[in-house]
């Protein structure tokens, strides 16, 4: 009982996050409009790491953090390629991941879009000439959109998605 009353008077656990990025809010709201019209309010993304160093994954994860919270704009990250509209592929594709990437691509239902995220995914980056690399993502599966950066920041990814949605709507 005491614990119950203590809960009533204690400070709330939630906090107000200030200093949201105005750029991000702007592009996010634009993106929401596009998603509403093209994908009927929900865009499902599946992320596949094919040879990245985890920096791009960290930034993609940050999209769901309190500062960005992309679910407001209708973007969700899903657990399986079978639920996905868009594949986010990071890293120059290694020989060891090539087969898995093909399988993920085949598992995603059509129509589907592939976005190469980061310099390495787009053109191989510093790993271009390594024996262990098969090639950039476009050498394995068709790529619809490239987001450059080492790694791209969250706002760059939102901008990239916006361009992709505008392209898809046409």
């Amino acid at each position: 009982m005491n614990a119950f009353f203590r809960k009533l008077i204690q400070k709330p656990l939630s906090e107000k996050v200030e200093a949201k990025d105005p750029d991000f809010e702007f592009y996010g709201n634009q993106l929401k409009k596009e998603i509403n019209s093209v994908f009927k309010r929900s865009l499902a993304i599946r992320e596949v790491d094919c040879g990245s160093d985890n920096a791009a994954e960290i930034e993609i994860n940050n999209l769901s953090s309190p500062y960005y919270d992309v679910e407001r704009f209708g973007v969700t990250f899903v657990a399986s390629p079978r639920h996905a509209d868009v594949l986010f592929v990071t890293g120059a594709v290694t020989h060891n991941m090539k087969y898995a990437l093909k399988k993920v691509y085949d598992a995603a239902p059509s129509p589907k879009f592939v976005v190469a995220v980061g310099d390495e995914a787009c053109n191989g980056g510093i790993f271009k000439d390594s024996y262990a690399i098969y090639g950039p993502v476009s050498s394995v599966i068709p790529v619809d959109m490239e987001i450059l950066g080492n790694p791209p920041e969250p706002v760059e990814m939102i901008k990239g998605l916006l361009v992709l949605m505008e392209k898809a709507g046409r």
Binding site: G91, S130, A132
Partner: peptide, 11 residues
């Protein structure tokens, strides 16, 4: 593991 083997040492 080693799906991400990128040949760092040789590079």
């Amino acid at each position: 593991f080693y799906y991400l083997h990128r040949g760092i040492e040789k590079l």
